[in-house]
Every structure is written in C-alpha cells, then in structure tokens.
Simulated scan of single mutants.
Amino acid sequence: MWFLPEKHRKKFREPFGELFPDITSALEYAGDAPLYAVGDVVTRNIRRKGIVPNLSVIDGNTMREPCRCTPLLPVKRIEVKNPAGCITDELISALENAVLDPPALIHVEGEEDLAVIPLVNLLEDGCAILYGQPCEGVVVRIVDSDAKRRAKELFSLFEEI
C-alpha cells in the first residue's frame, strides 16, 4: 500500500487535466474518446447523459459525505478497500482487471479520489478520465505521454507502507 504524506497533498488539489464547469462541456471536450469516471457525482452525471463509462470508480460519498446519487450501472461490480490518502495493491489490481474487461464499476470502501493516478498509466493514449474537482467542476484528463509522465511524478510522492 502507498500512502500520500500530508506535506504533498496540496499538489493533488490542482486539476490534473482540463477543468470544465459542467459535465456537458467536459463530455464535449472528451469527444469520442473511451470514457473512464472517478467519483459518484461524475459517474451519475455521465449516466444521466445516457452514457455508460468503460469504468466507473465510486465510493458512495461526495466531499466525504454520504452520496444519495450513487448510480446503479448495468455492469459487473468489483468491491475493494482503499483507505483515504492511499493507493492499495487491491485497488490497482481491480483497475487492471476492469480496464481489461470493460464495462465495470469499482466500488471502494474507503476513498476513490486517488484512483486517477494509477488509472492513467493503465490506459491507452487517447482515453479520457473524468473526475470531479470539488466546488469547481469536472476535470478531463486525456491520456497521453505527458499524462503518464505526470502520473508517475505524482505517484513518486507516495510512500510505501
């Protein structure tokens, strides 16, 4: 398991991609790219547009409060544990399996926020990851070599425990 020390957390508050005010503009930017969603609200909003993402990663919370809008998706469901501020081997393994056999929903007991980091390096170039930026909108990260480089830089800030 990898833990993100408090001293590095501020680096994760900046959007890791392009920030949009709403799901409509985020989806327009993503275009026809294969979609991957991290977060309950983003997943619900994508689903409301009639789209089932290749992968959704949710935890049943939004801004650390229970989310009453957790979407029900007609896809296989994978349950994992991942404590806040961490990335577990269990989460990484679930992401790997889901990417190989979409569509899927990973339900995290704990927190899913940091799943974007390993997910970037599991996806092919051209895929789009959407996640919520609290109180600001939706971030879209198109996977490319720069995204993978940046994800590796961010992952290097974690400590293995």
Rank of each mutant, 00 (worst) to 15 (best):
T88L: 01
E28H: 07
L73E: 14
V116W: 13
E18N: 01
E28G: 08
I106K: 10
V99S: 01
A84L: 12
E153D: 12
S56F: 09
A115K: 05
F158C: 04
A115R: 07
F12T: 12
N121H: 05
F3P: 05
V143K: 00
L154E: 03
G50F: 10
V57P: 05
A37N: 05
Q133D: 14
D22L: 10
V140R: 08
D101P: 02
A98G: 06
G39D: 09
D125Y: 01
K11D: 15
A37C: 15
N61F: 14
P71Y: 00
E18D: 09
V80K: 02
L130I: 05
H107V: 14
F158Y: 13
V52A: 06
C69F: 11
H107K: 15
V99G: 02
K148W: 01
A33L: 04
A128G: 07
N121L: 08
P66F: 07
E109F: 05
P53C: 04
K49I: 07
R44Q: 14
E109R: 06
A26W: 11
R77Y: 04
A33I: 09
G132E: 11
A26Q: 10
P103K: 03
R47N: 12
C67M: 00
I161F: 10
E79D: 10
H107T: 14
M1F: 03
C86F: 11
R150P: 02
P71L: 01
N54I: 00
K152R: 15
E65P: 01
P74R: 04
L27E: 06
A98P: 00
Q133N: 14
P34C: 00
A115G: 12
G60P: 14
E18V: 14
V75I: 13
N97A: 06
G50Y: 12
L105M: 15
L157F: 15
F20M: 08
Y29K: 12
L105F: 00
R9T: 13
P103V: 05
E79V: 02
H8I: 05
D101V: 00
I78F: 03
V57R: 03
K7W: 09
R149G: 10
H107Y: 15
L35M: 12
G50P: 13
V138Q: 13
L100E: 14
V143E: 09
V75Y: 02
V41Q: 06
R44E: 14
T88Y: 00
R64N: 13
V120I: 04
N61W: 05
D89H: 07
N82M: 04
R64E: 15
I142W: 04
A84D: 13
L19G: 08
T24K: 10
L4C: 11
G17V: 06
I78A: 02
L91S: 06
E6V: 06
C86S: 12
T43A: 13
V139M: 10
F16S: 04
